[in-house]
Design a protein around this nucleic acid. Structure first.
Lengths: 359, 359
DNA sequence: TTGTACGCGTTATCAT
DNA sequence: ATGATAACGCGTACAA
């Protein structure tokens, strides 16, 4: 292995061929194909779309012409004439979000299987911006829409869905043209809290995320539900709002520490805040999990490789994207989707352990 | 702060208005605006595009009609007629890459300032796939192209640039219609290594990244250059290839440890591998920075919040995206871009310290 | 300054 | 089964 690095050598060329390079001249139109193969444009179109039965001889002639000229249909013209653009609008919250990123990948892959392309736009958790995104997407004549959670009103979503097949994640909602895919955040949070409780923790702090955020609300509910089931009193002083980023989680824990309120475990409403929480503890000389147990939520790609590897609730971003896209495709095909999201599952790693004897 | 969580209350509504909701009926065409305002379609078009001077009375009449009807120009039709789609193709490597993600955000923001939209496609570091992405983007008639690094041959890139304004990052290249934005990876790696050397480290391991990856090659060069300048012998046994992911970095360090080759510091060619390296050390009971100093490359969003906060080379992904987009816009406007990328800079955090006395 | 007429590349609706 | 012909919504010569 190392030898390739130790001594000079001819640069390792990537092994893919130097590009197939068909005559793919741009500007080859359907009309040119028609003329070249001695048929009418309509026939070429029919062959391309399988719209009608065409005689075999014409078909082969056209196929040959297409190959020889390197014809590529123009989606723009297709969109104008046929009303389909083979593209789907996707409203995400931030194109570089570590969680939604994998969802976008799922969407891209699933859509790509049938020639559809996603058009991504970021709403930044702002209803007004999300509204603008949708307007723009509508203007660009996307064939369908996927909205990843977001804060848009249910009513507006339903309105949009009337004119455009729409899949929404992160909420439960039913309307014509709309399909909702809800993840059970509450149950996930319950699992996380229950895990901590089963390890003997009783004073479990909760870094809650933005109170106006629907996911955050559900996770808080799950936390409270688990506490209640276990007969552990809910203490408002152990619950800290934050803003879903590392720094925010860190500050929340610093304040918690400063407040003097005792706790032996922390459940953060997402992994990023959990990372920040871990840092705050570290800076105070507190060790995870020996002094404080820590659980996150999302199971980001990095969660398995932080120190110590983070126990967290698996939030299947990739599947969410893939399934949302599959459902949109169903809607576009005139079918009624029936797919559902996987249930949340706890991933136990190294950031949690049994509680020391407690007061 | 906490009170909002502790007791029930009316749910905090996001403060944005419930959507402006103009009469925005879809299907309002330019022709309808023309009729409604008593002018010709051409005049409406001219007003929309500022193509010619129009009398004030007609202009106001048209503006009013546009507002009243809620007219939105159809980009599809615009694309067909005018040849411009107001969209730019972006070939990235993976839509969920932690590094390129912020670059995409930069692109999205910069392009959005002038009404342009990015069309993202993932090439997955495969020249054949990148080729397909470009074909698809060409078919969709994007006005320009941004390619984020990638492995496509220089020759093919130049060919594409002849028919489509193109900005490429991660290499130096000049051709008509093409603008290249190269980041000095070599210098960045030199800075990192130099930092370690200045702290007294002499046996510095290098987790190198994929040898076939251009960035990896440059970073190796920088590492060697710094060593040479300092008169420290290059040891092939301290250099380990890996694949730019956490797990890969972890395995590389495990092997390094198993090899028995002594070292007091590790420089990883990207942050993700550095995270993996830190984990491998942790699992062996080795502490960062007390036992081993660690430096990464990229300065990912998470680098400041891992334990301990990672010393790393700042790789300005956001700026790269923003600047690439700005350059493409220049190209589109017929100008010659001249922007350059910021120089690499070392960010010293808590993962490095002076070397203990060495053998 | 403004309007007319045509074209962009494709699909859809008629005929045949 | 196939071919004219008319949209699709807009930009742009060209003419006025």
């Amino acid at each position: 292995m190392l030898s390739a690095w130790g001594r000079p050598q001819t640069p390792a060329m990537p092994k893919a061929p130097p590009a197939p390079t068909p005559p793919t001249d741009r500007k080859v139109t359907l009309g040119m194909v028609a003329r070249a193969s001695g048929v009418s444009p309509a026939t070429v179109s029919r062959i391309l779309n399988g719209t009608a039965v065409v005689s075999d001889e014409k078909r082969t002639a056209v196929d040959r012409a297409i190959a020889e000229l390197g014809f590529v249909p123009n989606p723009i013209a297709r969109g104008l004439a046929g009303g389909r653009t083979l593209s789907a609008g996707v409203v995400t919250q931030s194109i570089d979000s570590p969680f939604y990123g994998v969802a976008l990948r799922g969407i891209e892959e699933e859509l790509g299987r049938v020639g559809y392309r996603p058009l991504f736009m970021s709403g930044h958790w702002d209803p007004a911006e999300e509204h603008r995104c949708i307007e723009e997407l509508l203007a660009r004549r996307v064939d369908g829409l996927i909205v990843l959670t977001g804060r848009l009103g249910d009513d507006e979503l339903c309105r949009v869905a009337q004119s455009l097949p729409t899949v929404i994640t992160g909420r439960t909602l039913a309307a014509p043209g709309l399909y909702a895919l809800d993840f059970d955040d509450c149950e996930g949070a319950r699992l996380a809290t229950e895990h901590l409780l089963s390890l003997g923790h009783r004073r479990i702090a909760f870094i809650a995320g933005d109170p106006s955020h629907p996911d955050a609300q559900q996770r808080l509910l799950g936390y409270r539900a688990a506490l209640q089931t276990a007969g552990v009193r809910y203490r408002a002083a152990l619950v800290r709002p934050a803003r879903f980023f590392e720094e925010s989680g860190r500050i929340a824990v610093e304040r918690l520490l400063a407040s003097g309120e005792p706790f032996s475990a922390i459940f953060a409403a997402n992994d990023q805040m959990a990372f920040g929480a871990a840092l705050a503890l570290y800076e105070r000389g507190l060790r995870v999990p020996d002094d404080v147990s820590l659980v996150g939520f999302d199971d980001l790609a990095g969660a398995a490789h932080v120190i110590p590897p983070l126990t967290t609730v698996h939030h299947p971003g990739y599947d969410i994207g893939r399934i949302a896209a599959a459902c949109l495709l169903e809607l576009l095909a005139g079918n009624v989707p029936s797919a559902r999201l996987p249930a949340p599952a706890l991933v136990v790693r190294a950031s949690t352990r049994t509680a020391a004897a407690e007061a």
